[in-house]
């Protein structure tokens, strides 16, 4: 995903050959020079190898077997069966669609609102620190705590939103049971938690937009709105693209919100799987139904989807830079 940014920053100049006479360099210097970088990155790779890579490869191996959670020592080689089962299962496609739709209805309004809020926060404000802290507060709330509150607020019989709608004569909505209503409710939780955060990211990028650009457009007689559209947004393009990618990755892995929002039906993503995401499907297959092999196959499918997203991002970045 961030491959493009790698080539972006100037690489450090080659070894300082020109600075010091070669002879003065001892073995120590050479060792330090050669080996130290590896020692510095070693902790990451060591921990990752033990607790990330090993389980990951092992999971790949598991995905080619029929394995049950309770009897992991008995494995039957099934080749790609778990993958064909997955692709032939309506629920996989449903979960994929749901992941996509929840992703869209949580990411798009979230980033648009964040952009708008950032624009407002960029004005000279009274108590500017207060506004920033206030909109960032949901970020400190965990998925579990946030979802518990929203599940009550969106309740069918005694929820606050239905009570509020009732005041205006709208009959109560069974938020959890409907496909769109449940997805909107879940997207609301996601939006609530991340809008402020993204707004601050945008705000930071806005403050880095050079003054001259605004001055130039002011001379051209641009209004505030035109400035926003013609100066701010184009300057923020890389940041916007980046937040889209990060939000997309988050949306692809969406798990805790639908699981906890659904109460006892959470693991199947609602009675009809109306808000089951890929993450929840994986959890249901592996830890609800104990089919570890199938869960592993879904995990790898999610991984491939993320790789595809990264590739698309890299492509777009490249095109943007050319343009």
């Amino acid at each position: 995903m961030a491959t493009s940014t790698l080539t972006d920053t100037p690489a450090p100049p080659p070894a300082p050959e020109s600075h010091a006479p070669r002879r003065q360099r001892s073995l120590r210097y050479w060792l330090d020079f050669r080996a130290a970088p590896y020692a510095y990155v070693a902790p990451f790779f060591a921990v990752f190898a033990a607790f990330g890579l090993y389980p990951l490869i092992y999971t790949g191996w598991i995905s080619l077997h029929e394995v049950e959670l309770g009897t992991q020592d008995q494995r039957t080689w099934v080749g790609l069966d778990n993958y064909t089962t997955m692709l032939g299962d309506d629920r996989f496609w449903k979960a994929l669609t749901n992941t996509f739709t929840i992703g869209v209805i949580s990411t798009v309004p979230q980033l648009l609102m964040a952009l708008g809020l950032a624009h407002l926060l960029n004005y000279k404000l009274r108590a500017s620190a207060f506004w920033r802290v206030a909109i960032l507060t949901p970020y400190a709330t965990s998925v579990a705590a946030g979802t518990l509150v929203f599940a009550l607020v969106f309740g069918r019989d005694f929820g606050m939103i239905n009570w509020f709608l009732d005041v205006f004569g709208v009959s109560p909505i069974d938020w959890e049971a409907g496909r769109w209503t449940s997805q909107i409710a879940i997207a609301t939780i996601v939006t609530w938690r991340w809008t402020g955060y993204n707004a601050l990211i945008y705000l930071a990028a806005m403050q880095a937009v050079p003054n001259e650009l605004y001055e130039a457009s002011a001379i051209d007689g641009a209004s505030r709105w035109q400035q926003f559209r013609k100066v701010t947004v184009p300057s923020l393009r890389p940041t916007i693209l980046f937040t889209i990618v990060v939000s997309t990755i988050g949306a692809t892995q969406l798990f805790g919100e639908p699981l906890l929002f659904g109460g006892t039906a959470g693991a199947r993503g609602g009675t009809d799987g109306q808000y089951q995401t890929l993450g929840v499907l994986l959890y249901q297959q592996g830890w609800g139904l104990f089919h570890l092999g199938r869960a592993a196959a879904i995990a790898w499918a999610m991984f491939l989807i993320l790789v595809a997203i990264a590739a698309v991002h890299a492509l777009i970045t490249r095109l943007l830079r050319r343009a």
């Binding site: 599940a151 019989d157 039906a265």
Partner: peptide, 15 residues
């Protein structure tokens, strides 16, 4: 139209 052991089911008892 509830699910047993769900929050709403418990609320159904109290209400």
């Amino acid at each position: 139209k509830l699910r047993q052991f769900d929050t709403a089911w418990d609320q159904g008892f109290s209400n």
